[in-house]
Design a protein around this nucleic acid. Structure first.
Lengths: 107, 107
DNA sequence: CTATTATTTGGTTAATTTGCCAAATATCCA
DNA sequence: TGGATATTTGGCAAATTAACCAAATAATAG
């Protein structure tokens, strides 16, 4: 594998890494429905507001969300909606794992 | 967010975390084409074979790949092909990021 | 202008992940 | 059996990530 190839895998992994956190997944799912301001996440997520802000900035740096300041608030929205397709597949992975465990129990 | 919801996000994040590594992405892409034995990855990936084995076990524990021992070799194959759909979207994210940078340069 | 609210940034510590080495296991061949 | 090859496992050090607190910044209201 040459260097160019390698750095392309690093770039791809970084996008996935940005999504690979429970809080950030929650944020993305909320944004799938509608744009939200940080203040809304501060209400619904049980973590320090600085922590939430940092999660948002991880998603922004990865290019997954975008932000816009309006008045005192910063609104985030989904920039690349295709990330939602991930979720379906993740569900399939988890479901297949559960089915497997059921089979083990029943055998 | 209740506990059940929270642990569902943790489970989903774990699947994504398993994919969120350059070497593991490479492995998954190779497996998309055909099953491979560990020995093949040992040849093409520049890392200790124990490291490669551990990456494979991360993917296996996440339920993304499955393994089968045949003779001296262990063959891995993709268990949940839908993960390949991730790649397309990851490419879109990266492409959109690059286009944005171009716009900044041209403005 | 000052106080208040919303958000980001810097810094520190704790937890997690990664990668290598060495050792253990398993299979095959002579 | 004994040695070679393939793979996994355990353990440790280095690197990365996450969470919190405190402080900085920005916008608005009084």
């Amino acid at each position: 594998m040459d260097d160019q190839n390698k750095s392309s895998y690093v770039a791809k992994a970084n996008v996935l890494k940005a999504l690979a956190h429970p809080t950030r997944l929650y944020i993305v799912e909320q944004l799938a429905a509608k744009e939200c301001c940080v203040c809304e996440f501060v209400k619904t997520i049980d973590a320090d507001f600085s922590t939430i802000s940092k999660h948002l900035s991880v998603l922004k740096n990865a290019g997954i969300v975008q932000d816009e300041k309006r008045g005192q608030n910063v609104f985030y929205s989904l920039k690349v909606p295709c990330v939602l397709r991930f979720m379906d597949c993740v569900d399939i992975v988890i479901k297949s794992r559960i089915e497997e465990q059921m089979q083990i129990l029943n055998s």
